[in-house]
């Protein structure tokens, strides 16, 4: 703080915060200001610059939206969601009433229960995206961690697989997508599909792009277990599974988690791109549909989606951090 404020303003600040300083020590206050105040200042400055700069940018859909318009549109999106929910609830109750009437007349009659046919709202798309990214990320983890352990334990296998990892790692989701789409269409044939094809396509694309950091980190972590600890394991004659469970895995958990966090970040980024390109439900499709819509509010709504995407990505990373602190021993 002292580097930011000159002495006189600092004393003024001290006076103003007299009540607070009585309760908290100066060190605590400085800590709190670093954690809360400075980020707030950063965000405010950003909003200010955005507000001033946005009207200067003219597009065919009007000027670029400022924070106020985006905020209004966010409220609008929320309201649309509430309205849609209300209609859906009405639809369901009406359907139930009708079915009850039919059943009362003829208990053997076959009643149909249909889902509400309305278009998904912004929040529905958020939920779809979250489900897809979680499914893709979990599948990636389920593949990458065991495979990474095997590679880390076996140097020969590692040497054989390493070039493949290096080649596939930098592939963009856009390159995978057509292939995944075609393979899913050709192989996932079922009369009563459990998953939508579009869901599978996005999920598999997410998996293919996000598993590499976890795979690499797991391999590195497993190969780097302290040799003394390996010797302890040998002296104790731990079985292979006990060795993996009690020595190898705990030892590499911190570095695996670093990989998982990178993977989840990539998964979220890839998902939006995949949804846009594949026209599969989710935030990416929302953005694309708004873009195609081209109404005067589209840019504000897209900007709201952009902010939501960023915020969700941030929250996902925080959640991983919390889990990491719970599980990893070096935190």
């Amino acid at each position: 703080m002292s580097t930011l404020l000159n002495p006189s303003s600092e004393t003024r600040l001290r006076g103003g915060l007299k009540v607070l300083t009585d309760r908290f020590s100066v060190a605590e206050l400085a800590q709190a200001s670093k954690q809360l105040l400075l980020p707030m200042v950063g965000i405010l400055i950003f909003l200010g610059v955005w507000h001033l700069a946005a009207p200067q940018v003219n597009t065919s859909l009007g000027t670029f939206p400022g924070p106020v318009q985006v905020w209004e549109q966010s409220g609008q999106l929320w309201q649309e969601h509430l309205n849609q929910r209300e209609r859906a609830d009405k639809f369901v109750t009406m359907q139930e009433e009708r079915n009850a009437r039919i059943l009362a007349e003829d208990p053997n009659a076959k009643v149909r229960i249909r889902g509400y046919p309305g278009a998904p709202t912004f929040l529905d798309q958020v939920v779809t995206s979250l489900v897809t990214v979680m499914a893709g990320f979990l599948l990636a983890t389920a593949i990458a961690v065991p495979l990474g352990i095997v590679l880390g334990l076996n140097r020969h296998l590692q040497a054989a697989i390493n070039p493949l990892i290096q080649i596939f790692k930098p592939v963009s989701p856009l390159a995978w997508l057509p292939l995944v789409t075609m393979v899913v269409s050709a192989t996932y044939v079922s009369d009563d599909p459990m998953f939508e094809k579009s869901f599978l396509t996005s999920m598999i694309t997410v998996t293919l792009c996000s598993l590499w950091p976890t795979l690499i980190n797991t391999g590195v972590g497993v190969a780097a277990v302290n040799p003394d600890l390996l010797n302890v394991s040998r002296v104790l004659q731990l079985s292979f599974w006990t060795h993996v469970r009690k020595v190898v895995l705990p030892s590499s958990i911190p570095i695996i988690f670093t990989g998982l966090r990178v993977s989840l970040g990539i998964a979220w980024m890839v998902l939006i791109a995949a949804e846009m390109l594949a026209q599969s439900p989710g935030l990416g499709k929302f953005v694309w549909d708004e873009f195609q819509n081209g109404s005067s509010q589209s840019l504000s709504r897209i900007m709201a989606a952009v902010l939501a995407i960023g915020f969700i990505g941030f929250v996902l990373d925080r959640i991983m951090l919390v889990i990491q602190k719970k599980i990893a021993w070096n935190e």
Binding site: N226, D228, L229, N231, V232, R234, V235, L236, Q237, K246, V247, P250, S251, I253, W329, N330
Partner: peptide, 20 residues
């Protein structure tokens, strides 16, 4: 030919599992 618990070792630098 192989290590075994009947020949316990105290290692030069303790070699405890840091997570336990």
């Amino acid at each position: 030919n192989a290590p075994g618990p009947e020949r316990a070792v105290v290692f030069q630098n303790h070699a405890l599992m840091p997570w336990l």
